[in-house]
């Protein structure tokens, strides 16, 4: 069915998948691919179909180390719950020049502040963000939604059923974060026992631990 003489190692397969992927790849997706390739090609190719996610994770770690040790200019990063093959940070200026990219625009301070509050407090109401920042955040929040860094995650049960906001996958990718817990001080900033002054909001928020 196929004309490959020797089968590659699992490590090579995973490496090639990361190379081909356009966004971060999860261990689950890799496993699905291994199963799929086994079905499509049959025979010898089925031997990787039984690989477990834990094995995949271990192999990715191995790959990571080898990329670093081999000074390849490449690295694998844990981003947004998966893995991403990317260049080493110190090679950035050359890659940027090669791709003919301008320095990308940065988020403003108000935008970053608003984003930080959404990230730590999600799901969060606009009014809650405003009470922390002490200013109206209409404009900034709208921009963040347009940039797909923030999205509406639910509607609260409060009168008027206002929207609850949360961060997106793109948020994690933009900042190179593995997951939300990756942010420093998550426990502390999450949602402190809320103060006496706004109890009616805490009680009715759905989906909060």
């Amino acid at each position: 069915m196929s004309n490959i003489e020797t089968l590659p190692e699992l490590k090579e397969i995973i490496g090639s998948l990361l190379f081909a992927a356009k966004k971060s790849v999860t261990a689950k997706e890799i496993r699905k691919t291994l199963v799929g390739a086994g079905k499509n090609y049959g025979g010898l190719y089925e031997q990787f179909a039984s690989v477990r996610e834990n094995d995949i994770l271990a192999v990715v770690e191995e790959l990571k180390m080898e990329l670093i040790q081999g000074s390849t200019g490449l690295s694998i990063a844990d981003v947004a719950g998966g893995f991403r093959l990317q260049n080493e940070m110190n090679c950035g200026p050359w890659v940027r020049t090669f791709l003919d990219k301008d320095r990308s625009a940065k988020l403003s301070k108000p935008a970053l502040e608003t984003l930080a509050i959404v990230a730590y407090r999600q799901p969060v109401l606009r009014s809650e963000i405003e009470s922390v920042r002490g200013v109206a955040v209409d404009h900034v929040l709208r921009n963040l939604v347009e940039l797909q860094l923030v999205k509406v995650v639910a509607r609260s049960e409060l009168p008027g059923r206002p929207w609850l906001f949360g961060t997106t996958q793109r948020f994690l990718e933009h900042f190179g974060l593995k997951c939300l817990e990756d942010m420093p001080g998550m426990d502390e900033l999450k949602r402190m026992e809320l103060d006496e002054d706004k109890p009616e909001q805490t009680e009715s928020l759905p989906g909060m631990e």
Binding site: C91, G92, V95, S104, F175, G176
Partner: peptide
């Protein structure tokens, strides 16, 4: 976040 954003600026997938 600002610091992370700066870092990410040099990283391309």
């Amino acid at each position: 976040l600002e610091y992370l954003e700066e870092e990410q600026e040099n990283i391309f997938s």
